[in-house]
């Protein structure tokens, strides 16, 4: 390739600098404000704290029951992720390896649920959960179980879509060799297809976890005091008169670190997964 001309290099330099500033400003605000005493966030904005304090990081746990919210979010997100990925693996295997009646219909139906506005089924779902609870005694409304079921369907369409693409790219010769060795379809899936598709599966897991960890709308309606998740609980730092912005920033940072770290560590799988799966 020819060496890029200076016009290209300069455009690149300026553009990337501005974009980096835009992208990182909120992150810097989050970090610096989380280390400020309360009077700093109540006066005019300042970049550097007047004195560095870790108080907000201690106070966040007692102002609201943050640890409880954390545990709730963790249980809900991990369960939703594991179930969603397992179900997606089975579905994607079926779609990728078998030709059967309704195959196309299934793919279209599942994918089209992705475009439904959440608001459309929020209320009916809420009523259905209440009715199931009344009829069978299985409490879905207000429980973690209901939230887990809901969240896992949010990531399912995209996960299936991406894994079908991934599984399709794994040569069938491998399947056939396994069949010759006497492996049934499920053993082939577990022994051959899943290991070969690990990057795709990691990518899908990251996606499913992030979806569940960040969801706001359903969490705000479907949880009660004991099952409240972080997305709703973080609003508790605002009282009638005051917002403890330093604590809000500290709490935001604390709840972000696990996902951001996980995502950044695993992002190359996501790119690889997108390359092999969705983007074709």
């Amino acid at each position: 390739m020819l060496k890029p001309p200076p016009s290209f290099l300069w455009t690149r330099r300026i553009f990337l600098t501005l974009l980096t500033a835009f992208t990182l400003t909120p992150v810097l605000v989050m970090v610096s404000s989380s280390l400020k005493p309360l009077q700093d966030v109540q006066g005019p904005f300042r970049w550097i704290p007047s004195e560095l304090t870790f108080r907000p990081y201690l106070d966040i746990w007692s102002t609201v029951p943050l640890a409880d919210y954390f545990v709730n979010s963790l249980i809900v997100s991990v369960s939703a992720t594991v179930l969603s990925v397992l179900i997606a693996i089975f579905s994607a295997y079926g779609v990728s390896r078998y030709r059967f009646r309704g195959r196309k219909l299934f793919t279209v139906t599942v994918l089209s649920t992705q475009m439904f506005p959440g608001i459309l089924f929020l209320l009916p779902l809420f009523l259905i959960f209440v009715n199931i609870g009344n009829a069978t005694g299985v409490a879905l409304y207000g429980s973690r179980g209901g939230l887990i079921l809901t969240y896992l369907t949010f990531s399912l369409p995209f996960s299936i879509w991406m894994l079908v693409g991934y599984f399709d790219s794994i040569p069938r010769d491998l399947d056939e060799a396994a069949a010759v060795d006497g492996c049934g379809p499920l053993r082939t899936l577990v022994r051959i297809v899943v290991p070969a598709a690990t990057p795709g599966i990691v990518a899908v897991s990251v996606y499913a976890f992030m979806t569940a960890w960040g969801e706001v709308l359903f969490a705000s309606v479907m949880t009660n005091d004991t099952t409240r998740t972080l997305s709703v609980g973080l609003q508790g730092y605002a009282t009638q008169n005051d917002v403890y912005w330093n604590q809000v920033m500290a709490a935001s940072l604390v709840v972000s670190v696990p996902v951001v770290a996980g995502f950044l560590l695993l992002q190359r799988y996501l790119v690889a997964g997108l390359t092999a799966g969705a983007v074709k």
Binding site: T23, L234, V255
Partner: peptide
């Protein structure tokens, strides 16, 4: 760095 906004939970980012 560019992927951070995508990775941050929506409520944490938007509240900032």
């Amino acid at each position: 760095l560019f992927l951070i906004p995508y990775a941050l939970p929506v409520y944490a980012a938007v509240i900032t």
